[in-house]
Simulated scan of single mutants.
Amino acid sequence: MGVAGCGKTSVGEALARTLGWAFIEGDLHHAPASIAKMQAGQPLADEDRWGWLDQLGQMLRTQAPVVLSCSALKRAYRERLRAARPAVGFVYLDIDKPLALQRVAARAAAHIFPASLVDSQFATLEPPTGEPGVVTVPAALPLDEQVGRALALLAAHPSQETDA
């Protein structure tokens, strides 16, 4: 979980591969109206996200074990996912704004999310500091180090599943 550009897809795919679990790319499940909104440079509101989060929660319930990439920026969003699958764990990919902007700009041609929305992601973000079942990994680390840290930290929480 984390803001755009933090590496949710890359880390999530690598975690899923390492664990031998399925991977769900959360962005592929946004409603067409939400995708159009983002492509037009408009940030999503809570109302745009509830149905999406419910759909992802249903996938967590029925496709476990699974790694899901999902921004889950607010505690309320994470609680909605926890309600769907109480054992879910979160890997928070912590990134600073300049690096997030750089990464989002670099992938602009191939992604639904424009760099102009990075500020809104940081404005919406409620870091999961102190929440149960959350491990924090610096997004600036090389991918293999992020995955290694996430796995090591998650090993301390064996009952948790992973939402990267």
Rank of each mutant, 00 (worst) to 15 (best):
M1P: 11
G2R: 11
V3Y: 09
V3H: 02
C6K: 00
G7Q: 01
G7F: 09
E13H: 05
E13I: 13
A14F: 02
L15G: 01
R17C: 06
R17A: 13
T18Y: 04
T18A: 11
G20T: 14
G20M: 10
G20D: 02
A22L: 13
E25C: 11
E25Y: 06
G26T: 12
D27V: 08
A31L: 12
A31Y: 00
A33T: 15
I35N: 06
I35D: 07
K37C: 04
M38E: 00
A40M: 03
A40T: 12
P43V: 03
P43R: 10
A45V: 10
D46R: 11
D46V: 10
D48H: 12
D48C: 07
D48G: 05
D48R: 01
R49C: 04
R49L: 02
G51V: 12
W52G: 00
W52A: 01
W52Q: 00
L56N: 05
G57C: 04
M59Q: 09
R61G: 08
T62A: 07
T62E: 11
Q63V: 08
Q63P: 04
A64H: 09
A64W: 14
V67D: 00
L68M: 09
L68T: 08
L68C: 02
S69I: 11
C70S: 08
A72M: 05
A72F: 14
L73A: 14
K74I: 09
R75E: 15
A76N: 13
R78P: 07
R78W: 07
E79V: 07
L81H: 04
A84N: 13
R85C: 15
R85K: 13
R85N: 14
P86V: 15
A87E: 15
A87L: 12
V88M: 08
F90D: 00
F90G: 01
Y92P: 00
L93H: 07
D94F: 03
D94M: 07
I95H: 00
I95E: 04
I95Y: 01
D96E: 10
D96Y: 03
L99Y: 06
A100C: 11
L101I: 02
Q102F: 03
Q102P: 12
Q102M: 08
R103M: 10
R103Y: 12
R103K: 09
V104R: 00
V104K: 03
A106I: 11
A109V: 12
A110D: 15
F113K: 07
P114W: 02
L117A: 02
L117N: 04
L117K: 05
D119E: 13
D119T: 12
D119G: 03
Q121D: 06
Q121Y: 07
A123N: 10
T124W: 09
L125D: 05
T129S: 13
G130P: 08
G133H: 08
V135T: 01
V135W: 00
T136Y: 05
T136L: 00
T136N: 05
V137I: 12
A140V: 15
P142G: 04
D144K: 02
Q146F: 04
V147N: 00
G148F: 06
R149L: 15
A150M: 06
A152C: 12
A152P: 01
L154F: 10
L154D: 08
H157F: 09
S159M: 11
Q160Y: 13
Q160I: 11
D163Y: 11
